[in-house]
Design a protein around this nucleic acid. Sequence first.
DNA 1: CGGATTTGACCTGCGC
DNA 2: GCGCAGGTCAAATCCG
Length: 332
Amino acid sequence: MSGDQERSHFSFPSHDELSSLVSWKPAGGATDSAGDPRGFGPRAVPPPVSLTDVLRGSMMDYGALARAFDLPCSAPSDVLAPGGMASSRELMADVGNAGNSMTPSSGCGGSATPMTPNSSTSWSSTEAAGEEDAERCKKDEPKQEEEVEKQRVKVEEEGGDTSEKVNKSKKKGEKRQRDPRFAFVTESEVDHLDDGYRWRKYGQKAVKNSPYPRSYYRCTTQKCPVKKRVERSYQNPRIVITTYEGKHAHECPATVRGSTHLLPPPSAMSTSFCQNLVMQQMNQLNNDNSLQANINPNVYLANLPPSLQQLQLPDYGLLQDIIPSFIHGGQP
DNA sequence: CGGATTTGACCTGCGC
DNA sequence: GCGCAGGTCAAATCCG
């Protein structure tokens, strides 16, 4: 069933290399990770069937990845992902905590290790899918990190899986705090992508201006506060937008079960790393005369495949969220 | 029977 | 203050 469930089409401008660094095959017929996310048991050479595998694999290839982005890097430089199927390409970029795009120490990323199995194109960003949050977060920025951390500590102290009750216990007037997020845009016919973690669906809402509902998932691991939202682009139904929120307080089940040995801890996928990737990429593009136009979001979008352009173009608010500093800070 | 999903109700934040 | 939309809860239902 995995037939041509997905199609790849996103190649980042001038960095086709990247596509071979982070790529994977759809989890064969992969459908719902909530059901049975594991297809990658103790195989000798398990294919990168999960987002986790893929992304973490990419971490192992930090050196190569960094090279692709021209990042300063001390990691082994000759480690390169098998890459193989260029059918799936991803550029991920956690753009930071709640709109504050450059807070390397916020630790926001490390968390949700977002990846997209059945899919192709994907790239991520904080709030890429959370238009409303983007605005909200911009306003909350100053306090947000602090508050998020406080809340997390509080929850831990209370000891229960109170994470979901936080809202209720909050005093009035206190804004609801949001964990750092990043979103992935993925082309897939499957809504719920297998990322190696186990998720329980806890809600579904109709989305304004979209015929497709948004689904809400929570990580089923005890005390793990991570949530994710999954929705389809109303303009391109094949596009799935997955937004991760929070930080996993545990190992990825898939990883634990399988090939952990070479993998860095979840936290290794740090925000700053992701940020760096994107920012380096952006800077490089900016420094390249032939690509100067990329500082303009519209032109930038022009480099994206049609489906993504469609997705982002309406008022490119999403893209702005995805590469906020690049657009705003990159210019004099 | 236990765990996952569905779905309507409720809560919260925000814009007008 | 009101209405809207996003987000969450929890009872009902489904499914292995």
